[in-house]
Simulated assay, not measured.
Amino acid sequence: MIIFGPLLVTVGIGFFCWLLFMLAVFALPLFVGLTIGAWAFHTGAGVLGGIAMGLVAGGATFGVGQLALALVPWVWLRLLIILIYVAPATVAGYSATHGIAQMAMSSPIWQTILAVFGAIAVSITAFVRFIGMAMPGSAGQGLARG
């Protein structure tokens, strides 16, 4: 039993880190969806109305970002759009890594250092994923030219 405890903790931390990396792209739509959903709930829309408004707002935020990346012809404006979506992912990466570091060690200096490294890693991952979304697909272009 003493062997399984640390193993399960390591697997759990690894799972949450993987989940953080996969969901970092959706930090801004999640934030917008939660904010609009909470606002709708507190203005009298009820639980289902708040959930519906939050889902619509989060989906619209992600859709507007994808549409903007697809339609904007200037590289500098695409980079700005990507940075707008990567900034909340960086904050989420810092907060999540800092929370994990607080459980693992007691030194606040090392907690902050690990949190900064986690924020950098999450922001690079989100940036690379958004760059992949912003690049035009080459699958259909070869058929049109040939």
Results as ranks from 00 to 15, higher is better:
41 F>H: 09
131 I>D: 03
20 L>E: 01
106 S>Q: 03
32 V>Y: 01
35 T>S: 10
113 I>V: 15
102 Q>T: 10
101 A>F: 03
124 I>V: 12
46 G>W: 04
72 V>A: 08
113 I>L: 15
104 A>W: 03
56 V>F: 07
10 T>P: 00
137 G>D: 15
129 R>C: 04
42 H>V: 02
76 W>F: 11
133 M>H: 10
52 A>H: 08
51 I>D: 03
128 V>C: 10
14 G>E: 04
124 I>L: 09
132 G>H: 08
104 A>Q: 08
132 G>M: 10
123 S>K: 12
83 L>Q: 05
129 R>W: 02
78 R>W: 07
96 A>S: 11
31 F>T: 12
62 F>H: 05
60 A>E: 10
136 P>E: 13
33 G>W: 01
40 A>S: 01
16 F>R: 02
135 M>W: 04
12 G>N: 05
112 T>Q: 03
12 G>K: 07
22 M>F: 14
109 I>W: 13
8 L>W: 06
18 W>C: 04
76 W>N: 09
11 V>G: 13
92 A>P: 00
20 L>A: 04
88 P>H: 00
128 V>M: 11
40 A>T: 10
15 F>E: 15
10 T>F: 12
41 F>R: 02
120 I>P: 09
41 F>S: 06
110 W>M: 06
116 V>Y: 00
117 F>H: 05
24 A>D: 13
100 I>A: 07
142 G>Y: 03
9 V>D: 03
53 M>A: 10
93 G>M: 06
141 Q>M: 13
115 A>W: 06
58 G>F: 00
109 I>Q: 09
128 V>F: 14
50 G>C: 06
8 L>Y: 01
45 A>F: 10
35 T>W: 05
104 A>E: 04
82 I>E: 14
126 A>R: 14
130 F>V: 04
76 W>E: 14
70 A>L: 02
3 I>L: 09
93 G>F: 04
105 M>F: 06
110 W>P: 04
32 V>N: 01
75 V>M: 06
110 W>E: 02
39 W>F: 15
101 A>R: 00
16 F>D: 12
102 Q>F: 15
61 T>Y: 02
87 A>F: 00
85 Y>S: 14
114 L>F: 11
35 T>M: 13
132 G>A: 06
106 S>I: 02
100 I>H: 02
71 L>H: 14
119 A>H: 01
91 V>R: 07
48 L>E: 12
18 W>E: 02
2 I>K: 04
70 A>D: 06
72 V>E: 09
119 A>F: 05
88 P>Y: 01
55 L>S: 02
19 L>R: 13
52 A>T: 14
48 L>G: 11
49 G>N: 00
95 S>V: 07
130 F>Y: 12
137 G>I: 10
59 G>E: 00
130 F>R: 05
110 W>I: 06
102 Q>V: 11
9 V>F: 07
36 I>D: 05
22 M>W: 15
137 G>C: 04
55 L>K: 00
44 G>S: 06
128 V>P: 08
22 M>K: 15
66 Q>D: 09
126 A>L: 12
111 Q>R: 13
140 G>Q: 08
82 I>F: 08
30 L>R: 02
114 L>M: 10
9 V>T: 02
2 I>W: 08
141 Q>T: 14
130 F>A: 07
23 L>E: 09
121 A>F: 11
138 S>D: 10
5 G>T: 15
99 G>V: 03
133 M>W: 12
59 G>P: 01
43 T>K: 05
107 S>D: 05
138 S>T: 14
